[in-house]
Nucleic acid binder design. Structure first.
Length: 294
DNA sequence: AACACGTGGTA
DNA sequence: TTACCAAGTGT
């Protein structure tokens, strides 16, 4: 390796000390944050920008300050409070995870990766993030920001592979410092989020430009990513519209109201059926639908 | 391993 | 305006 690891670490950590955002789920002045706050934020931040999470997080934590508080509510209340963050199944899974924490873990967010990983909605990233940020555990935390930073600085490429590779994981483990791994995780994520961004990176503000392999190679452009599925007309769009109606209604909604969100009956009915199947909506009585009451 | 899963901001 | 992108997970 040509890059000096201590130098890379020092640069990133020094930069983080100066530019770290004071986000509400982060602990104040060196203290550990509330693990529940960390967990709620991690669920909300899955595929969702910080700016959109902020207001929902605040009201959520006021309403449900502990896992037991959320567990005592209905999943429908959680889905409604989730608002327009997207992927309402995350709200459903967070509610289910809170129930498991209340009933099986004494109301305390588990402090180890393996136990966290068993909770619904907690995958590799989220388990590592909660264990690291809430409890100071030593884990590789590989999110889209960290992957992009390492891919550029070390591998010299613009974008990481679509899925995490074994080589990537090995590299991240090699870079993980023995001490303060949680601080390293937060710092590399923050660098990716604020400086080494996907679209137009702020290389002039980057603490490791002189160590960056992508820069040294002249910023070669990565391969064009295959165009994803178009949005218009997808089941996701239809499901989103149906959920918006159910969320915004104070009580059960008649099917004739849901029918207004989409004119093609086949797709509309199929999507409503899938929402029932997913447990994101329930049939209250004939032709009356609502968010789940439990 | 590829695909489904919401939503809104930005270039 | 279309397309990309945002602290991923489950199947």
């Amino acid at each position: 390796m040509t890059t000096s690891l201590p130098m890379l670490h020092d640069r990133v950590l020094t930069w983080f000390a100066a530019h770290r955002r004071d986000l509400p789920w982060r602990g104040r002045d060196g203290e550990r944050p509330d693990p529940w706050a960390v967990m709620v934020s991690e669920f909300m931040l899955q595929q969702t920008p910080v700016s959109r999470v902020l207001p929902v997080f605040e009201t959520w934590m006021e309403r449900w300050p502990t896992p037991a508080d959320l567990a005592a509510a209905s999943s429908g209340d959680a889905i409604r409070a989730w608002g327009r963050l997207g992927y309402p199944r995350r709200a459903q899974r967070l509610h289910a995870a809170a129930g498991a924490i209340a009933s099986e873990h004494g109301g305390q967010v588990p402090d180890d990766y393996a136990t966290l990983r068993e909770l619904p909605g907690v995958g590799d990233y989220t388990a590592a993030a909660i264990a690291s940020f809430a409890y100071g555990r030593h884990h590789v935390v590989l999110d889209t920001n960290v992957r992009r930073v390492f891919t550029r600085v070390i591998a010299g490429e613009q974008y990481p592979a679509k899925a995490v590779t074994a080589a990537e994981r090995t590299l991240a483990a090699d870079l993980l410092p023995d001490d303060d791994a949680d601080l390293w995780a937060a710092a590399t994520m923050e660098l990716g989020a604020l400086v080494c961004t996907a679209r137009a990176p702020h290389c002039e503000a980057c603490p490791v430009t002189d160590l960056c392999a992508w820069r040294a190679a002249g910023y070669p452009e990565g391969e064009q990513r295959p165009t994803g599925q178009a949005w218009a007309g997808t089941d996701r769009q239809v499901r989103g519209r149906l959920m918006a109606v159910l969320r915004d209604a104070p009580g059960p909604v008649h099917k004739t109201t849901l029918d207004l969100v989409w004119d093609e009956a086949g797709q509309r009915d199929r999507c409503l059926a899938s929402l029932l199947d997913d447990g994101l909506a329930v049939l209250v009585e004939d032709d009356l639908f609502a968010l789940p009451g439990h």
